[in-house]
């Protein structure tokens, strides 16, 4: 039964290998690496800030769009329509999760980005042109498009877990609320959501972890430039897209080591999200007294 220990060994190996390879960069830049916006292979000056910024902002865009949307879809399929239709809609939404990320990338670059450039971005620039968020030429590729595609990619995960949670709400609770004359929305808000809020937060964590590390789709559309800009129209990069673009090409040991350190930061970020979500799950289990 030693096979089970392959898992802890792998995790250990991941940390050891990544830390080992990033030692030159850790020694050279120290903690400054995390807050330095530089990414200059010519002068051997590297910093993670622009990649971390891109990762967090694109994830943030994805979350603020995907969470409400997923909640609405889950409510729709569990509470508002007959179970048969709900299941069909649920399965269809879950198919979004089965589409490989590189296909999101293809579609994003060839179909969605031109659509953004021609229709969505000019519209946003017209209504919010004075905001720094929507400055710059509408080229379709960039932070906003990456965030939107990420939202679409994590939508099925959050929807699926959320609707499972909603299904677990005891029917007698809902029925008594209906019996008192509550509308569907009131039942959803006061009973279903309140009962399932912990599960919804857990689902959010799941989506968050996905969005942080998503690589291919983001690499296709984010624009790949090491810059921190308030505008969502300009090109940016994420940790994962930087790795995909530059990893095989870093000819200098410090460059390679800095890239690996970026990877290490991403690993730590996702592990932190994992730990938080596990803690949350445990809290929830204690509260409801049953497993998920």
């Amino acid at each position: 039964m030693g096979s089970a220990f392959v898992l802890p060994l792998l995790i250990l190996g991941l940390f050891v290998a990544l830390t080992g390879l990033s030692l030159p960069s850790i020694k050279r830049f120290g903690l400054h690496f995390i807050v330095s916006p530089a990414w200059n292979p010519v002068k051997h000056d590297f910093g993670a800030l622009s990649s971390i910024y891109g990762t967090l902002v694109s994830t943030f865009i994805a979350m603020i769009l995907a969470v409400p949307l997923s909640l609405a879809i889950a409510l729709f399929q569990v509470e508002l329509v007959p179970p048969v239709i709900g299941r069909v809609v649920g399965s269809a939404i879950e198919l979004l999760a089965a589409i490989p990320s590189i296909i999101y990338g293809m579609w994003g670059l060839f179909v969605f980005a031109p659509f953004m450039a021609d229709h969505v971005q000019p519209f946003l620039a017209r209504i919010g042109g004075n905001l720094p968020l929507f400055k710059g030429p509408p080229m379709g590729i960039g932070m906003l498009t990456a965030g939107l595609i990420l939202a679409l990619m994590i939508l099925p995960f959050i929807t699926s877990v959320t609707s499972d949670v909603f299904r677990m709400v005891p029917a007698h609770l809902k029925e008594s609320a209906y019996g008192m004359g509550s509308t569907t929305f009131e039942v959803a808000r006061k009973i279903t959501l309140r009962y399932g809020i912990d599960g919804v937060v857990g689902a959010g964590f799941l989506g968050l972890g996905r969005a942080l590390g998503e690589t291919m789709a983001v690499t296709f559309v984010i624009g790949n430039s090491h810059r921190i800009s308030a505008s969502l129209f300009t090109g940016a990069n994420s940790i994962a897209s930087t790795l995909a673009n530059e990893f095989t090409e870093a000819s200098d040991p410090l460059y390679l080591s800095s890239l690996v350190e970026l990877g290490l930061i991403l690993l730590i970020l996702t592990v932190m999200v994992q730990i938080l979500s596990q803690l949350w799950l445990r809290r929830m289990r204690r509260k409801t007294g049953k497993g998920m």
């Binding site: 089970a4 220990f5 898992l7 802890p8 792998l10 995790i11 190996g13 991941l14 290998a17 990544l18 080992g20 390879l21 972890g209 996905r210 942080l212 590390g213 998503e214 690589t215 994962a240 790795l243 995909a244 990893f247 690996v260 990877g263 991403l266 690993l267 996702t270 592990v271 999200v273 994992q274 596990q278």
Partner: peptide, 27 residues
């Protein structure tokens, strides 16, 4: 031990696939 293994499994499931690529390149 099982709890630890389960936790590692969850962590690995949440590990971005590109990090796994970097890891295998390294080893």
């Amino acid at each position: 031990i099982a709890a630890a293994v389960r936790f590692c499994s969850n962590v690995l499931m949440g590990t971005p696939s590109i990090i796994v690529g970097v890891f295998i390149y390294a080893i």
